[in-house]
Design a protein around this nucleic acid. Structure first.
Lengths: 352, 352
DNA sequence: CTGAAAGCGCTTACAG
DNA sequence: CTGAAAGCGCTTACAG
């Protein structure tokens, strides 16, 4: 790679397609064909050009290509999500696929509830013209954003949670996570341990994932004839504090739960704190279940039984869909979640 | 903004500088001057052009500008760091400053210990030609990377931890965090509580931050005549597991510590787990101190006393240095850390 | 304070 | 399978 310098000593000027063309004795159009992997180039010509390209260290200028192609060599990641680990996992997944492709990842967090939500995204998209975007929940559900992307003709992949495999008209443009599958396993696990006083701390009504997870948990409980106790049915907003508050409310009930299922790990961590303060031992006095398998899950004492979603894998698939040339494969991409049993779940103390 | 469409109904073609020039009755060079905020444009001309630009919704094409400028409207964030919250905070900080500037953030995690470390960064820099990069510790210490950036003439800001305010020759190109200041406060806090059997779980020898933090803690202890007990001096690698293992070793010593200072929160969280398993109560039996004020710090029970670094603020300053045009201000940028007292620290039980 | 010409480095039709 | 011409949308010297 340092050959660039040796080949052109003391020269700051950039190696261009013209240099390659001259050295190869062909037109720059032919070099362009090689760069873009066009089929219609004589193998011998192609090999010669390829050799020259690597020898003199030629890198096609992405600005110039972008100008000609009317598209930047960038993929945008659009989200409004406070969970740092989730975001980093998604970034890593996308980057796993992008590495070596010459395409870079532009991160674009936004404020879903801001006045300027759409206008600032429009700004971003018109300014940079990314060759595609990945949108994460919950903004992936925003109709205005989808319309904007259609209008500006920007290819997109949505990441979304659904109860069923039905991807409707958006086939091939969605990565669908089956949150419900691991939740059903978790519900069955809790019920099989013998719990019958089962509390629930769910998520906000307007998060699709909240519905899907609940549905999964209930289905799992039902396989052993258990249900969420109607008097132990609470709701939070996926935050630590809301989980803490909800757990405190549950502990104050006349007939306390022996198990609490939480719609995510953050809220479960809040419930740990409430249990700690109430002098309840986990899992002896209280079984706790979460969702996400966040880093905190196995840092809690005892470690949390939870449901894992292959986040990074989902982003990798999304990036792949966006940049892979063969669009033949339009099958919906569905990813399952899975139960991870750790120390926070056990049979209820007898006689309780 | 939707005026674009109304003004050019049914027209997919992009609004260009030529349209603006024609409508304003000037050359495109003059429009270019307005775009680039050149001083030498008649105020009246400028206002007219500005009005037209917003009216017809003109966005200068970043590809075209990039091609002409030989530089992309992108800032790169280069790092090799496993701490998700730290990374996200840095991203948010940089984006705080970039918002509205038309410049986007490209995230470029890398593998410091890989063979291809430098060559793949070269690839990235030559391919995208970002207008600047921010490099985070520990790769911010890598000489080869700094040399590469010099060679490719890419402006950079390093984020680094130093014991002193000395920024040497790199003035104005570094954001220096004074990790030692908050650590000194923490050391003084522990000593003032009356602890004298004080254990330490430090970081790797090759992390500058490990030295700086230790130095700070020791200085703080010294203000009350306390020291880290030589027989309670352990080392980890900033990971949860290494903190857990080090704490277990400390608990196995004949004369257990009444307080353990950890060089970061992750290791402190590991020490919580070890304490939990050993039946030690925090803070009654054991005072624990961390560093970072990571999200886990106040999710632990009891919440962790730790040292906070204004991470997001540092990234904001770094981005500002990179994109602000006036380079007159070349003062070194130094940021202090501060002690955050929570529930994990108290006086040792008397008679212990 | 303003402009005509040339150029940034690549690709798209269009030919052959 | 290959090429000459024109163009992508902006900016840099160079003039005036």
């Amino acid at each position: 790679m340092t050959e660039t310098i040796e080949t052109f000593p003391g020269r700051r000027k950039k190696v261009t397609i013209n240099d390659v063309a001259r050295l190869a004795g062909v037109s720059k159009k032919t070099v362009s064909r090689v760069i873009n992997k066009s089929a219609s180039v004589h193998p011998r010509t192609r090999d010669e050009i390829t050799e020259i390209i690597t020898r003199i260290g030629f890198h096609p200028d992405p600005q110039a290509r972008g100008l000609a192609f009317r598209r930047a060599f960038l993929i945008g990641l659009i989200y409004d999500n406070p969970n740092a680990q989730y975001i980093v996992n998604m970034q890593m997944g996308a980057l796993d696929r992008l590495r070596g492709s010459g395409i870079e990842l532009v991160v674009h967090p936004c404020d879903w509830h801001s006045e300027a939500f759409i206008s600032s995204l429009r700004e971003f998209l018109e300014n940079q013209r990314p060759s595609g975007v990945i949108i994460l929940p919950p903004v992936a559900e925003d109709r205005r954003l989808l319309d904007l992307l259609d209008e500006l003709n920007v290819p997109r992949i949505r990441v979304t949670a659904r109860a069923t495999g039905d991807t409707g008209s958006a086939i091939g443009r969605e990565i669908v996570s089956r949150d419900d599958i691991g939740c059903a396993e978790a519900g069955a696990h809790v019920a099989a341990l013998g719990h019958r006083r089962i509390g629930y701390i769910g998520g906000k009504r307007d998060y699709p994932s909240a519905h899907v997870r609940r549905q999964g948990f209930e289905a799992g409980l039902a396989t052993h004839g258990a249900v969420i106790a109607p008097d132990l049915d609470e709701r939070g907003d996926y935050s630590f504090d809301s989980g803490y508050a909800a757990a405190r409310r549950l502990f104050a009930r006349p007939n306390r739960p022996t198990a609490i299922i939480c719609a995510n790990d953050e809220m479960a961590a809040g419930a740990y704190k409430a249990a700690f303060e109430a002098g309840l031992r986990i899992p002896g006095d209280l079984t706790l279940i979460g969702f996400d398998d966040a880093p905190i899950a196995d840092r809690l004492s005892p470690p949390l039984t939870t449901v894992r979603l292959p986040t990074r894998e989902m982003a990798r698939m999304a990036a792949d869909r966006l940049i892979s040339t063969d669009l033949l494969d339009d099958a919906p991409l569905v990813v399952d979640s899975v139960l991870v049993v750790r120390g926070s779940s056990s049979a209820p103390k007898s006689g309780f």
